[in-house]
Amino acid sequence: MLKLENIEAGYTRQTIVLRGVSLEVPQGKIVTLLGANGAGKSTTLKTIMGLIDDEPRKGSVTFQGNTLTHKDTESIARSGIALVPEGRGMFKDLTVFENLMLGAYHHTATAQSTLQDVLKRFPRLEERKNQHAGTLSGGEQQMVAIGRALMSRPKLILLDEPSLGLAPKFVQEVFNAIASINAEGVSVMLIEQNAKKALEIADYAYVLEHGRIVLEGTGAELRENENVKELYLGMTHVPDSGVGRFRRKRRWN
């Protein structure tokens, strides 16, 4: 459905963040992209959405067979891709209702019925409808951000660290929401710090390091991978004594 081929991108001519990234999000699946801070995860999403001027400098992005590379963000969004931005991207001085309606900017005809679906999915937002988004808790704001993305009836939804900074209760709620949105047929590309949760719901996963995909596989495969365990799942095994105490050299292949 979404396909990235050999994407090279950065922010200025001197810096390069993505050094040839290829990945794919198949129809109806959840794909997660793991990686440390600065690996290029957000840059990947921004490149897909066309948010960085004149990028990618090499490679191509295709969505349902159409090239998105170098198209403007508005038409990329209108082609059926919705972004849940990093840090939730609230319009803080606008009400929850206004935030949601902005998601349906080009979908006036279906806005009311989609709004009912979104409020059914997140009943908490119904009560908060006329409050300014800035007064909501982080978890509630994340629901607004996801709801706003759904307002455009997307075929693919891109989530940039949706669980970051949320209380554990909300983290679970967000992952449940992602799973149920996917169950209704929306493809998902998920960027997460919470690798454990992400790998649980992901059909397929990629590991990004220094702008390169260093590992890929199904969620289950990656959960069993020693490097992923150590780096992303925090399961380090350090022997009490002997040669193993030295930092193990990491090889991806």
Binding site: T73, E74, A77, L83, G89, F91, E98, L102, Y105, S152
Partner: peptide, 24 residues
């Protein structure tokens, strides 16, 4: 108005407005 709402959105967060497909 709808365009007025979009104006307020753009004034608060142009990048997110753009990503939502609002014709900035």
């Amino acid at each position: 108005s709808k365009i007025g709402l979009a104006m307020r959105a753009v004034s608060q967060n142009p990048e997110v407005a753009k990503a939502l497909g609002i014709p900035v």
